[in-house]
Amino acid sequence: MSAPIRSPETTRPETPAAKAAAAAALDAAAGRRGALAAMLAVIFPGLGHLYLGRKARAALFAAIVLVAVVIGAKLDGNLYTPVKDHPLTLLATLGSMGMGLPYFVLLLPLHYTGDVTAQGYDYGTAFLLSAGLMNLLLVLDAWDVGTGRKE
């Protein structure tokens, strides 16, 4: 008489406590993966999705955000920085900083400020601010995909 075959189910933890511990370990791993993906997405557009293996989406998102940044800068739009006694500029700055590394590249090495007298100033500002806000949405998406809440 042959020995009974142990199915995978029989090797899994059966007690509720063991099941809860296994689920918690899985959740912790997914949380770490999501957090790392979100952090990478903050640094550079598309990097979080690249880390998660979504190469095509990463390339598309990076291209969209960078095109918006380049058009905004070419039009001499405003790259927001906090202005004293204007609290709303703080929110706009946070939104613009959402684009990650490109914001600091424009601000520090390139000393980009925009030109309020330029014809495309308002349009450029809209492009630059939208680039930052789009990348903030990408951060949330990378977090959701990394933690398994989204495909």
Partner: peptide, 11 residues
Amino acid sequence: YALLLSVFFAA
């Protein structure tokens, strides 16, 4: 602008 945002949100 509409093109960029539409592609972005669709994806």
